[in-house]
Design a protein around this nucleic acid. Structure first.
Lengths: 132, 132
DNA sequence: AAATTGATGTTAGAAAATATAACATAAGAA
DNA sequence: TTCTTATGTTATATTTTCTAACATCAATTT
């Protein structure tokens, strides 16, 4: 994993912050977790702590729900995305066509494109707008 | 204020997160607030909530303390920085030499330079390393 | 139409995190 | 030595978050 990805997966935010940033209720956030759509970290005392990636995922969930897709569908979509990422990397790396480093760059760009193509109308789903 | 500046001043982090990111104790953070060096926002229930700017400031405080400067000195330094910013903008804008937009860009660059010259050895003080 | 399901709201009670305030202390300055 | 400064520690109150249960309402299914 790259340094950037590590940073984006640091659990920094309490649920109250996530509620404000996503405009989701605590109930909704916990429900999505219950169904395996997000897996926020926990403090020693079991309180949920969310990363930037978690928040992006919640914004994506919100958007997909708005599009009329239900929880089961979203779960499938997320699973497919994971598969795609894995497969792409395996194929490319096995073929020796690219280095591990280059691969990560490509995957990152691919995710960018996803944002543009699969959700062309989306205003949400990119926590980076909260930072520089 | 630019969008970026707004985002950097959003109160998003509880004190526990700030403790981990800065390696300061809650006691230290509250003590610095008591002496006016930081002013974190408060929730409705009076809990402190910190912004990226607050965290940067705490990292700067920590560094200045490590350099042997005491709280009073740090307060002065911060006050001077504020003055500098204000004066620079007033002079330039009154002279009509630059637009408001350009001014902000210059000030940002100036802050960057501060970081390089006044704290050349510093590894801290830039929260951006936690994000992309 | 009635019953079921899915997503969310609401409430209650417990546990965790944070608040303030007071007292303690170690190192350095006066 | 005594005082000051920065920080630790502890106690108690308040706020936030937790889980779990029950409620609701719209959309499906029977």
């Amino acid at each position: 994993m790259t340094g950037k990805e590590i940073r984006r997966s640091l659990p920094l935010f309490p649920i109250s912050t996530v509620m404000e940033l996503t405009d989701l209720s605590a109930r909704q956030i916990r429900y999505y977790e219950e169904h395996g759509l997000v897996s926020p970290a926990r403090t020693k005392g079991k309180l949920r702590m969310f990363s930037l990636n978690d928040i992006d995922k919640l914004l994506e969930i919100k958007d997909l729900l708005d599009q009329g897709i239900n929880i089961a569908g979203i779960k499938q979509i997320f699973a497919m995305k994971e598969l795609q990422k894995e497969q792409a990397s395996k194929i490319l790396v096995r073929k020796g066509e690219i280095s591990d480093k280059e691969l990560r760059k490509i995957l990152r760009e691919e995710l960018m494109r996803e944002g543009q193509f699969h959700r062309p109308h989306l205003r949400q789903g990119d926590m980076s707008r909260f930072y520089h």
